[in-house]
Design a protein around this nucleic acid. Sequence first.
DNA 1: CAGTGAGCGAGCTTCCGCTTGACTT
Length: 658
Amino acid sequence: MNLIIVESPTKCRTLSRFLGKEYKIEATMGHIRDLPKKKLGIDVEKDFRPQYLLLPQKKEAIKKIKDESKKAKKIFLATDPDREGESIAFHVAYILKIKKDGVSRIVFHEITKPAIEKALANPKKIDLDLVDAQQARRVLDRLVGYKLSPLLWRKIRRGLSAGRVQSVTVRLIVDREREIEKFVPEEFWEIWAKLKKHIGGKREDLPSFLAKLVKKNGKVIKIEDETQAKQVVDELKKANYEIYQVERKEIKQHPVPPFSTSTLQQTAARRLSFSSKRTMYAAQRLYEKGLITYHRTDSFNLAIAAVEKMRQYINSTYGKQYLPEKPNFYKTKSKVAQEAHEAIRPTDVRCQASDIQEKLGREEQRLYDLIWKRAVASQMTPAIWDKTKIETQATSAKNIYLLLTEGKIIKFDGWLKIYRVKEQESERVGEMELPEVKKGDDLNLIKITPKQKFTQAPPRYTEASLIKALEEKGIGRPSTYAPIISTIQGRQYVEKMENQFHPTPLGTTVNDFLVEYFAEIVDYDFTAKMEDNLDEIANGKRKWVPVVKDFYQPFAKQLEGVTKVAERVQVPTEVTEEKCPQCKQGRLVIRIGKFGKFLSCSRFPECDYTAPHVAKLKGVKCPECGGDVVIKKTRKGKQFYGCSNYPDCNWASWRKPK
DNA sequence: CAGTGAGCGAGCTTCCGCTTGACTT
């Protein structure tokens, strides 16, 4: 009998379906050895020697692997084909005491029979350079986290945390908040003209159309206030209108790639209002039920066999005009993608969400439907639009103005047949019916409308936009996007209000401290630079110890200096209007503790009054009893709106009232 | 399910990334 070791127990089951009785398959369930939790576990004096321990929660898995290995003739290490997977393989070899030459490391990027058979026929050795790159990553993260956090305990408050990923994520949110604070809206005006083709004498019912003023005497026009707007409007009222140019063209809209973890999380948030946590929980169950491929991936690749099945399905269900001549391929833009797995797709394209209703919960069903549509659509033909651009010239006594009208009409739906893009729906506004006009046609002005507008402040991050930003900067991995978001909320660094992230005073204080003293580490490019170094280790160009040393030496010096020099920082509190009911002298202030916000007396420690904090919503009253609406949290931490007269009035809602 | 903050200085907190399953509603 041969033993194959993989990471996920679901993979075990899938593999055993492909392979015969002569193979036994066991799962490590992720990493099995790691640095100790309670201490640094790195000897910085001795080349950063890491101290690895068996992970206590993996005892069972490790025991199984050990037992099976004794019976096995041959052992294949089939952990994921990436940096972390190579490291897991290394540690499995270590605990099984396999000699270097006896190792059979195999890799496959898709779980299909030919891929596995090919892998089994081509065993390799463990790539020790790749293992070293993982080790450097692990050691660096430990050094940053376990050195910076205690400094925060001393300088700000006990129990705080800092790290390469979480700290820069908080920084994104704090920086965005500052941009919003300092943003000054600027006034500008848009001028829209309603026009109709002029037909000498005869009355004909031709459609009118709207055109937006864009240029004055060949230059882009900017109208800053009402006076300017009025001037232009007056001039345009008396102007002569004629068609300057008409451009019609066909444009192709290509399908979007199948889901990776980050795009799945972003889309499920937008379309289904799922948090990233909820998305991953539902995806996990779909994966375990064998309905989708692995859900933690950064790849857009699909197994060739799966694509072939999708093409057959598309051809027989929708017809050949929906089937491209050749399969569609998608490349990831990300430099840090490791592409160890396929993109997320249904394991069997013939199986639609409605076919397996009984097997699925409601959330699983909705998510499966989304995954199915996105994957199938990715292999369909482009949509074709007829796009029309009409340029109208308005000639007044003094100036020549240019107005623009754009519209598009769908000619062939292609992939949009099954995967409507939400953004598309808003574009329908521009899909107005455009009249048949040609260059030189005279037009009549029907109406002219100036519209006052203001520039908008950048929006606060949502879970979706935050994950997008992290992925673009190469920060975090598919397995960590959802946990990062939980961590920074759990630490009370940020809070989510109406789906948007706001920094708390605590988060802002910690961020400003780190930016002041450890600018390099909370730099947006820190992770990208680290990845470049890790690549050099993986390629054998550099050794891991000097890479870590180059980082650690200046970092240690900085730590020492800041420990001595930096003053203890106060976390600012928000003072409310209310007086302290206990001492009747102080004001109530909002503080952030372990469990979130609470009210206490400004005269602490002289007065130790505390009370739970409830956030009242301004300008809204309870629709049932007229009491105040307060923001509450369920035991699980999900936010909802309730009545302040609870339990006398039990009105509650997930959405913000009115 | 109560409790949270400071400092007293007992013993404690903390990272990122890989994987599920133990709980509860």
